[in-house]
């Protein structure tokens, strides 16, 4: 097993001629079928998000007042909700929110976290100590509650949700990059770059960054899964994203009251979509971590 895994790594990292993209994908699929399944799910949802306008049979926010709370039918595949809106169209449109929040949030977390980790690891000393203590302090708070409280306190808008998630997630990247930098700080290539007279920023971003960022990059899919989950949770509680918005969490909130009266379709379908996307991202992320972490690879 170990052999096939290492072959898979080489296939996916070396750009030998003759290795087409297709072959590489097949290589990944062979090494880790679960990861391939994850990628497939994520791509499918990405497709849904991009082409939602063409895929939706109805407008996601126009209410049919004569068709309130109808069970799934040929006309409305997932039924209609309490406002008489088409649940199927809304579920498709919801993919836009999933990606629209997760991608910028994770990018923001990287943009904040990676430089902080680089500098903290390279400089060390007091700055590093203070930052790490601050991150330790943040870790004591459950992430969902912290995200909820900060969004509620700083103003409830979609932009704010993205900013708060990105900020709260940045320590993950900072920590990973920092520990890599600590290990690399006194290595020969850094020493020689220093001896050649490179300024600090060049050492950090040209020399250290490419070598220190791999572990952090492997986390992106898992962190995106986290962002999708948390943003839906916020919407479920009506914090940041409000109810008629075709966002999955907000839709589950709308459907909650109908669960005890038997109209299961309003909350069930957006929940399944949410699970599938998060599950896909987690499968993808799990595979990514296996590919990049030699310890996890060896364990298999």
């Amino acid at each position: 097993m170990a052999e096939t895994v290492s072959n898979g790594i080489e296939q996916s990292t070396t750009a030998e001629p003759g290795f087409s993209l297709k072959n590489r994908l097949i290589g990944i699929a062979r090494v880790s079928p679960t990861m391939a399944a994850g990628v497939l799910i994520v791509v499918a949802f990405g497709f849904m998000a991009l082409f939602a306008e063409f895929l939706m049979p109805h407008d996601p926010v126009s209410a049919y007042h004569d068709r309130v709370l109808q069970p799934p039918s040929a006309e409305h595949w997932f039924g209609t909700d309490g406002n008489g809106m088409d649940v199927f169209s809304r579920v498709i449109y919801g993919a836009k929110f999933g990606f629209g929040i997760a991608i910028p949030a994770v990018l923001l977390a990287i943009v904040i976290g990676v430089p902080v980790g680089l500098i903290a690891g390279y400089r060390g000393g007091f700055l590093d100590e203070v930052l790490m203590r601050f991150f330790d302090g943040l870790r004591v708070f459950p992430s969902i509650i912290l995200a909820l409280a900060v969004v509620a306190a700083t103003g409830q808008s979609l932009l704010n949700v993205v900013l708060v998630l990105g900020f709260l997630d940045s320590p993950v990247f900072a920590r990973l990059v920092r520990s890599e930098v600590l290990a690399l700080r006194s290595s020969v290539f850094v020493e020689s770059a220093k001896a050649a007279g490179n300024p600090t920023w060049r050492i950090l971003f040209i020399h250290l960054l490419p070598n220190a960022v791999q572990g952090a990059m492997a986390q992106t899919a898992v962190r995106a899964a986290w962002a999708v989950r948390i943003s839906a949770t916020l919407a479920f509680l009506g914090v940041g994203i409000q109810a008629p918005t075709p966002e999955w969490g907000a839709m589950i909130r709308q459907g909650a009251e109908f669960m005890v009266t038997g109209q299961w379709w309003v909350a069930l379908f957006p929940g399944i979509a949410l699970i599938l996307l998060v599950f896909g991202l987690n499968l993808f992320g799990d595979g990514l971590q296996d590919l990049t972490d030699p310890r996890r690879r060896a364990a298999k």
Binding site: T34, A225, R229, A232, T233, F236, G249, I252, G255, A256, M259, W264, A267, L268, G271, L274, I275, V278, F279, N282, L283, D286
Partner: peptide
Amino acid sequence: SLLGFSIPTYWLGLV
């Protein structure tokens, strides 16, 4: 267990 990671608790409760 990855599936367990992905299920929103509140949705599971409602179902």
